[in-house]
Nucleic acid binder design. Structure first.
Length: 791
DNA sequence: TTAGGGTTAG
């Protein structure tokens, strides 16, 4: 009887205090309630204490929560629920190791057994902090305890692996769970979107719908983001229909998702119509619209909406700024960017990592790398995206060494790369032609399980092709299940690069059969392939088909490509006629292509015409002057050649020094013209002399060995100089086994003399020599070159 | 629910 009274009082007190705790809206209110608890000696009631701890964590009063727990723990044993509250509380407050120590305490010092909540919380504690190894360890633990098929735990695991870009691991977990709920599906879909696997995320979403899984507007919003990113209007419209059908049209955030979808698909009027449907647009929908205007080059509208926000006294956020920065416009807008930059500095927003990353990106696209680097260096919080922006900026502007050295710096700091980083690094490897590093990155891709990312795979195909290993490129290409148009383009251009035009054409047809629509770039790739293989008729047909069958308007690049095709094949007059007939004003690309063809086919008159046009356009880039000078030299017109070089000198334009790279045992050796600096220089020159001797015996003589007395000093020097590729080849012969392939990379176009020399060497040494020059690959074998002597 | 980082042609 007495007992019952005490118990019921305690019960009444508990309900009273629990409701007090629940009602607390500020920390000080909660503190007052806590004081009451102490006064009434209710600090030993498990349920009340659990509630209090939970609430303290919500108010981020972490040390206080810890105190409450420790005090309780001295006199009473906590139950699993309380442990879970603490593990979750620490996790939510970004203190993963506190969570971990509680978890360890739980399993070591108590008889309690962790349940699915425990594991879900502890996994999520380690899913966003870069402590991947701990996360994997916990995964091991829960596997043993048999919780890996639990849908709560599974969702946490999928989220964790997605955050580490371990997509295949996430799939493994996902696949093993048979009873999937909406949260698990949603985690999977949004994880794929987070990792930029957009196609895949849509596929999973469709699967989810097909299996009748319930989805809510959150899922729709995520899928809308993926479709927007891919700019797939048709897919987007079908989701739009779904939105209408499910009655989510009144959800503002779904409308916002649709706004960005239509914006990214270029239908800015549909976007602004949807925007007007929102009665009271909040900051988020305004941000979407601002970004939408900006994406479609409607900078005035964008800035106007931004001003309206400011006038209304609305506090803009980082998203507003990022949307306002015209990242999507590759050219111009430096003024707009710098005025936004100014605003960011004044308002302090420049220290926001997203804002500074966006600014870094724009400066990179404008090739303002110093400004970009300064922003990067000064940003206090560097996210993975900031590193990626800087690395890709370097890679895209040809500063490949900078890209790679920054990547190494990142690795030293133990920052994990993601598929975006890898893609940029592969592009740098491709440009540099460093096969050894490229292979190393390939291993990294396997290790990190990035093999399901289409960007990574496409960049890998390109890397192998540009590093000379076309067979490996094809193997990677064949392994890709869902190829997009860029993947096809990469492989087609790979064949073009290696002079294998027929294979490029076959692949182009396969692409059409597979249902992928070609783009303007596809035609550039396949036209170049024709051009480098002398397939004139095929190229002309393709050009016609591009316009009439595929409805693609040719750009200046396409016309230049046709000039190249005709010119390279020796049809110089046709090329000139083509230029005169083209509907666009011919520019540097067209005349430059013609000039290049004149070099190969030794047509001085046409060369003069082409170069006059080029210089009149004030497009006198160094390369064109050198080309013209070489054409005169080849014709033994040394006086004219020298005068062209004099113009170069007067204009203060420096010729890019030629250099050749060769990799031996993973080490790169770079040679310049007449280079003496290599440790093995003596042996290299001896080898070269031996080869030259053989060559002379066989009746070859260098094209430039005559009439030196007519030549100006500088010109003479240039001709006597030993070009870097000869040195690299001699070195390659010295350092590699007989019969093995020699691969070299030259930064400029190979000259006629060196081309002949290499042919000869391939014959007398019985070696295959693969040369990558500025334009393409040459495979020398048995005295012949794959380029068929016009390049 | 909004934003920032990546692949192909020259």
């Amino acid at each position: 009887m007495i007992y019952r009274t005490i118990a019921s009082i305690a019960q009444r007190d508990r309900s009273f205090f629990v409701s007090l705790i629940n009602q607390a809206t500020t920390l000080s209110q909660l503190n007052q309630t806590h004081a009451h608890l102490i006064r009434h000696s209710i600090t030993t009631d498990l349920i009340t204490i659990t509630k209090l701890t939970h609430k303290l964590f919500d108010f981020k009063a972490i040390s206080k929560a810890k105190n409450v727990f420790t005090t309780f723990n001295k006199t009473n044993p906590p139950d699993l629920f309380l442990y879970n509250v603490l593990i979750r509380g620490y996790s939510k407050n970004n203190l993963p190791f506190e969570s971990l120590s509680l978890y360890l305490q739980l399993i070591k010092n108590t008889t309690l057994k962790p349940d699915n909540f425990t594991f879900a919380f502890i996994v999520s504690a380690f899913s966003s902090n870069g402590y991947e190894k701990v996360g994997v360890l916990i995964h091991g633990h829960l596997l043993v305890s048999g919780f890996s098929k639990d849908v709560f735990v599974g969702s946490a695991l999928v989220d964790m692996y997605m955050n580490f870009s371990r997509i295949s691991y996430a799939y493994k977990v996902f696949d093993e769970i048979t009873e999937r709920d909406g949260v698990l599906w949603n985690t999977m879909v949004s994880g794929l979107v987070k990792n930029c696997c957009f196609e895949e995320s849509i596929r999973v979403f469709r699967d989810m719908v097909a299996r009748g899984a319930r989805f809510d507007s959150t899922t729709l919003a995520v899928v809308l983001a993926a479709v927007a990113e891919l700019q797939e209007l048709r897919n987007g419209m079908s989701i739009h229909c779904l939105v209408v059908k499910m009655g989510y049209y009144s959800h503002e955030y779904v409308l916002t998702g649709l706004i960005s979808l239509y914006s990214k698909c270029g239908d800015v009027s549909a976007a602004s119509m949807l925007f007007r449907m929102i009665r009271e647009p909040d900051l988020i929908s305004c941000n979407a619209m601002i970004a939408g205007f900006c994406f479609n080059n409607e900078n005035e509208s964008s800035v106007r909406l931004f001003r309206e926000l400011l006038v209304q006294g609305e506090k803009v956020n980082s998203s507003t700024i990022v949307g306002l920065i015209p990242v999507s416009c590759p050219f111009g807008h430096l003024n707009l960017t710098s005025s936004i930059h100014g605003f960011c500095v004044k308002s302090g927003m420049v220290s926001n990592p997203s804002v500074s990353t966006a600014l870094t990106t724009v400066y990179s696209r404008l090739n303002e790398m110093e400004l970009a680097r300064r922003l990067f260096d000064e940003s206090p919080q560097k996210t993975l995206a900031s590193w990626n922006a800087m690395i890709s900026g370097y890679a895209q502007n040809g500063l490949t060494e900078m890209a790679i050295s920054l990547f190494r710096e990142m690795q030293k700091l133990d920052i994990y790369p993601n598929p975006v980083t890898i893609t940029s690094i592969l592009s740098a490897c491709a440009q540099l032609g460093t096969l050894s590093m490229g292979k190393w990155v390939h291993d990294l891709i396997k290790k990190e399980k990035f093999e399901s990312n289409i960007y990574v795979l496409t960049a890998l195909v390109d890397m192998y092709a540009k590093c000379g290993n076309i067979e490996e490129a094809r193997q990677v290409f064949d392994s890709i299940v869902e190829k997009n148009v860029v993947t096809w383009n990469a492989m087609i251009s790979a064949y073009g690069l290696h002079g294998r035009g027929r294979e490029a054409l076959v692949l182009f047809d396969e692409m059409l059969d597979s249902g992928v629509s070609p783009t303007g770039v596809t035609f550039l790739c396949v036209l170049y392939a024709c051009s480098h293989a002398g397939l004139v008729e095929e190229g002309e047909k393709l050009f016609h088909s591009m316009i009439h069958d595929h409805g693609i308007e040719p750009l200046s690049e396409h016309y230049a490509c046709m000039v190249d095709l005709l010119g390279r094949a020796g049809k110089l007059e046709n090329a000139l006629e083509f230029i005169y007939r083209m509907p666009l004003e011919p520019g540097a690309a067209e005349w430059g292509a013609l000039l290049g063809a004149c070099m190969v086919h030794k047509n001085i008159d046409l060369a003069r015409l082409a170069s006059d046009k080029l210089f009149a356009l004030d497009m006198g880039s160094v390369g064109y002057y050198v080309l013209l000078s070489n054409i005169y030299s080849a014709d033994r017109n040394y006086f004219q050649a020298a005068s062209v070089r004099k113009v170069l000198k007067n204009k203060n334009l420096a010729k890019t020094p030629g250099c050749t790279l060769i990799e031996v045992n993973g080490h790169q050796h770079v040679f310049t013209s007449s280079d003496q600096s290599h440790p093995q220089a003596v042996a290299i020159y001896a080898k070269l002399e031996e080869l030259m001797e053989k060559m002379r015996e066989a009746g070859f003589h260098a094209e430039t060995s005559t009439a030196l007395h007519d030549v100006e000093e500088e010109e003479k020097e240039m001709m006597v100089k030993v070009h870097s590729e000869k040195l690299a080849i001699a070195f390659g012969l010295l350092t590699s086994e007989p019969g093995t392939e020699i691969r070299i990379i030259k930064n400029l176009r190979v000259c006629v003399d060196c081309h002949n020399f290499t042919k000869f060497v391939s014959k007398v040494t019985d070696r295959v020599i693969v040369v990558r020059d500025a334009n393409r690959f040459h495979h020398f074998k048995d005295g012949e070159c794959s380029c068929g002597d016009h390049w």
